[in-house]
Design a protein around this nucleic acid. Sequence first.
DNA 1: ATAGTAATACGCAACGCACCGTATTGGTGA
DNA 2: TCACCAATACGGTGCGTTGCGTATTACTAT
Lengths: 191, 191
Amino acid sequence: MPNQRRGAPRSESARLAILQATARLFAQRGYEHLSIEGIAAEAGVSKQTIYRWWPAKSDLVADCLLDGMLLPSRLTIPDTGDLRADLIAWLEQLFQLLQEPDGRGLMISLIAAATANEQIGGRLRDSLGGESSLVARLATGVEAGQLRDDAPVAELGEALVGAMIVKALSGRPGESADAVRLVDALLVPPD
Amino acid sequence: MPNQRRGAPRSESARLAILQATARLFAQRGYEHLSIEGIAAEAGVSKQTIYRWWPAKSDLVADCLLDGMLLPSRLTIPDTGDLRADLIAWLEQLFQLLQEPDGRGLMISLIAAATANEQIGGRLRDSLGGESSLVARLATGVEAGQLRDDAPVAELGEALVGAMIVKALSGRPGESADAVRLVDALLVPPD
DNA sequence: ATAGTAATACGCAACGCACCGTATTGGTGA
DNA sequence: TCACCAATACGGTGCGTTGCGTATTACTAT
């Protein structure tokens, strides 16, 4: 039985302080203006302690996203049993977020971060990193007979998230009616 | 109309050299590693000449995109009369591009640039800045009776481009079969 | 038990580098 | 004459790395 670890254990408080500082500054200033030195100062920690554990800024942000520290909780997909209604409600929430300047900034920053780190892109795709996954919700819809058995669930999920991303990038907010149209265009009911 | 212009006119050769250098370095190193000083050196021009005409790096890139200097020409949407076949062919071209490492890098860089500049995002949405627009092609499909009259053309376009963007960001290439599935999921034929 | 040693983590401070955006200067051509 | 240009310099900011001194912990030899 192999060697017990020697030396001081990693400081949990430092780890937490760094992640929280990252989340705070990410929300305040966005991904672009995030700096390691700024995070270190905000967390009350030395730069080296960050560099020791995270190779790059993007990995730090990825860890934050993984811990759900970057996104408002209202962005997870509901499951009331009615797939169409759930998707529309979820998209409307997203569109509403994009209309608030800070909300759009947050989304843009997430996309920018995804640009630097595939993991973040994956999380965005599996839709916004929350507990519940968009694709899983679609699969539930298939089981409930609200979607054809052979519906390309993964593709539909990518199309939905992608449409939102394009709206964010091009700066067209997207209204409630757009959410309805998009969902109705994508969701072909079974036979 | 008065204004005689006084002094020397803007140097067209400097303008071109700057745009071409930007395009070259963008393709080589990506948006992240693009620097004004690097562009100036590559173009054989002083920094001031760049700052005089473009307020920010992202505007410079936007101008390049506008002039079609950043994208391979094969990414424009064909119009053979068969909407479904055209869309599938176009998506397959895109997916193939994403499978080449350089191609994916190019797309990621474009997305990163869009993150910093709404105009670039708009160009991406109108799809990839070429002469032909994806939405226009869809509209042609409506006229040809290959799509329902009330098909939400704009939303479909965003969904298609968005799906591709999500694939690029999350690092899943996307194969030919995916293109077919996606198009068939989105395109509901008229009645 | 108690010291000593080794391994590890930490904060602090400083380094050279790249790039930023802004002057200033002097040359050149309409 | 005066707008354009190249060249050069400047103060800032952030990068990623290094060296230093100090805790904290486990192993080991007394």
